[in-house]
Design a protein around this nucleic acid. Sequence first.
DNA 1: TCAAAAGTGTTAAGTTTACACCCATGA
DNA 2: TCATGGGTGTAAACTTAACACTTTTGA
Lengths: 227, 227
Amino acid sequence: MPKRNYYREHPKFYVAVDCIIFGFDKGSLNLLLLKRNFEPSKGKWSLMGGFVQKEESVDDAAKRVLKELTGLDNVYMEQVGAFGEINRDPGERVISVAYYALINIDSYDRELVHSHNAFWTDINKLPKLIFDHPEMVDMARDLMKQKVGHKPIGFNLLPKLFTLTQLQSLYEAIYGETMDKRNFRKRVMEMEFIEMTDEIDKTGSKRGARLYRMNDDVYRKTRKFKI
Amino acid sequence: MPKRNYYREHPKFYVAVDCIIFGFDKGSLNLLLLKRNFEPSKGKWSLMGGFVQKEESVDDAAKRVLKELTGLDNVYMEQVGAFGEINRDPGERVISVAYYALINIDSYDRELVHSHNAFWTDINKLPKLIFDHPEMVDMARDLMKQKVGHKPIGFNLLPKLFTLTQLQSLYEAIYGETMDKRNFRKRVMEMEFIEMTDEIDKTGSKRGARLYRMNDDVYRKTRKFKI
DNA sequence: TCAAAAGTGTTAAGTTTACACCCATGA
DNA sequence: TCATGGGTGTAAACTTAACACTTTTGA
């Protein structure tokens, strides 16, 4: 078997995944971070991570790790990239692949999150993170910020039914700037796949606000999106 | 050392890098591909790749592998992402990190390339590639196409001095569509860091065309680019 | 002298931005 | 009744797209 020789001479590495988990709450983007109650770096803040196992792909490892923390399946995730500096983890050489996830902050397993000592943190008030996790976060933010403007991924951060005010406030949080209400709504209403429902949300105002819904099937027909 | 235990239980993996090497010649984008004269998959077409070693970062491995093939240092490279399906390489489990590189097709080590049995191939007439290399190529193309419009990375594919016709033809090859000559030149001439030289290229026409140059220092002052 | 690539401005269409008031309701 | 967030249209500024002819020169 000539294959054998070809591979055998080379070193092997631990491969990990790290998750940048975005949530949106009360006008702010948040990350779900661990205050580590385990070694290494016990007591410090980090992203949720884990090691890739033999019987799973790297993408599957990321899904598993996300589920271990949040209990959630079928979450929108995207790879940020591989981080491979030699001493990025001072304990051992570990090559890590970062992923970001967009979850609805109202639906996750609070027990699990609590048991991992994880907390939602305002993205503009992040604590110091271990290793190269700050770079992972920065890259994830940039990637997400850039993608959210031309693919309808932001809806993953909202409940199924949302008001246009919520939607605008989400985009303002992501872009870090305010937007014109009339122009925003004009753009949204031109997109057929953002459907008005006949429901009203009375929690945010006395008058109540119309609830909208994102329709994936309609989106797939045109795939046009721009906010 | 509690660290030890934490890592020891986990499996290790071969980690490779694969390079999508772009060149531009006679109006076409080209990739530098290997017709493998070694196992595994001898005789088939593949990207240039190699294994990450103990004493190098993943980025450095990509640079090394690119240099092994082309003899070039200081090449513009960007990570495409990690590819981690379990059976992506049928020989052994290997996790690969793909990078694309932009090189000037007039300056590389022809001996080295020949000794690796590598050939430039028109990107629109690619042979069947092994493993998941077609996906790597597609992702690299998309990434590059999207980046080349708002960062001045395309110049890496051209000689230091280039004509505006060459520049336009490069962008047409990348975008896969023709562009309006006057509009194109208008945009280019508004960018201060694309400097007119006093040299003329007579190889492409009887009349001769003005040669231009990209000035990095001037670019850094504004960082505005849009084609 | 003519073929072949280089070079050059203007106008219309489309897109984006700026901007202010009335509405409905519960407290 | 009034404070609060919800909802609505138009015009100016800017950006993008469409378009055709003259110049230079070597073969």
